[in-house]
């Protein structure tokens, strides 16, 4: 096997296990948590920021730097906005449930 092929097999193993884990993680979720869960996992998909950081700073070509910088901006909005919005939703949810208990 060539090194690249080995790398592909190795990455595919990781992919397969992560997909299976993702399937198993979400089982019974109460309906009130659907939107916060969606929003919270949306923030995680902003992880592409990690890739964008390298593109923006690697000084390859001007075009790559521009694309990378645009990607960093968009992904940062996704990450920062995503986590904050989720937290706001969950804060409201907590108030509601404690109000109901009283």
């Amino acid at each position: 096997m060539t090194p690249e092929l080995q790398q592909i097999v190795y990455l595919s193993f990781i992919l397969m296990l992560a997909i299976f884990l993702g399937f198993e993680l979400i089982a019974k979720v109460p309906a009130t948590l659907h939107t916060p869960l969606m929003s919270g996992s949306n923030a995680i998909s902003g992880i592409t920021l990690v890739g964008a950081l390298v593109s923006a700073g690697a000084e390859q070509t001007a075009m790559a730097t521009w694309l990378g910088a645009a990607a960093v901006t968009l992904a940062t909005i996704n990450v920062v906005g995503g986590y904050l919005v989720t937290d706001r939703m969950l804060a409201m949810f907590k108030k509601k449930s404690s109000g109901g208990a009283q």
Partner: peptide, 22 residues
């Protein structure tokens, strides 16, 4: 996969799979 980055693959797959279940 493009960047050979494990964390992107794992987190992306987690969101992709859990998103489908949700």
């Amino acid at each position: 996969f493009v960047l050979n980055n494990n964390l992107l693959i794992v987190s992306g797959a987690l969101v992709g799979a859990s998103g489908i279940i949700l």
